[in-house]
């Protein structure tokens, strides 16, 4: 494009009087490689506009509609979990009761065993004490003899 023509267009552009077609021409000129250095300041401007137009909106996965659906699914999932947990809990409780009975008997036996062991040990200890008594009687004998 001729220099005078561009100058004319730019002046119109700055006054806000260019049509879209004319602005397109300007954009094309300033994004090309051969630019008159006299108008160099317009290069970043039009390149910027060109680049800005390429920005795209990347959809985020949280739209109102899907939100509602996810709440529905959430409530369904929650109720399933609730039913399952109640079921498992009740079953576990039953099991728990059974094992408790078994444990009771076992504990009884264990404590009995333990008590037996204790008495055995105690008796052993008591037997050991007999020697002490012997020592004392001999000691008394010695003292008395003196």
């Amino acid at each position: 494009m001729e220099r005078s023509k561009i100058k004319e267009l730019l002046d119109k552009y700055l006054e806000g009087e260019t049509s879209l077609a004319e602005e397109k021409k300007l954009r094309e000129y300033f994004t090309s490689s051969a630019i008159d250095p006299a108008f160099e300041e317009f290069k970043p401007l039009f390149t910027f506009f060109e680049k800005e137009q390429e920005i795209k909106y990347i959809e985020k996965p949280k739209i109102n509609k899907t939100k509602k659906i996810s709440f529905q699914w959430l409530s369904i999932a929650a109720s399933i979990v609730l039913v399952c947990s109640v079921y498992f809990f009740s079953q576990q409780k039953e099991e728990h009761n059974n094992t408790r009975k078994v444990n009771h008997e076992l504990a009884m036996k264990n404590t009995q065993d333990l008590l037996y062991m204790m008495t055995n040990v105690m008796n052993d200890g008591k037997n050991q004490l007999k020697y002490l008594k012997e020592f004392e009687t001999t000691k008394n004998q010695i003292i008395r003899n003196k």
Binding site: E40, P44, L45
Partner: peptide, 21 residues
Amino acid sequence: AIRVSLSRARKKIRKEILKKH
């Protein structure tokens, strides 16, 4: 009004770019 405001804005931008240049 749009044209006037736009013209003002474009001139401002040009002025700032020139300053920088």
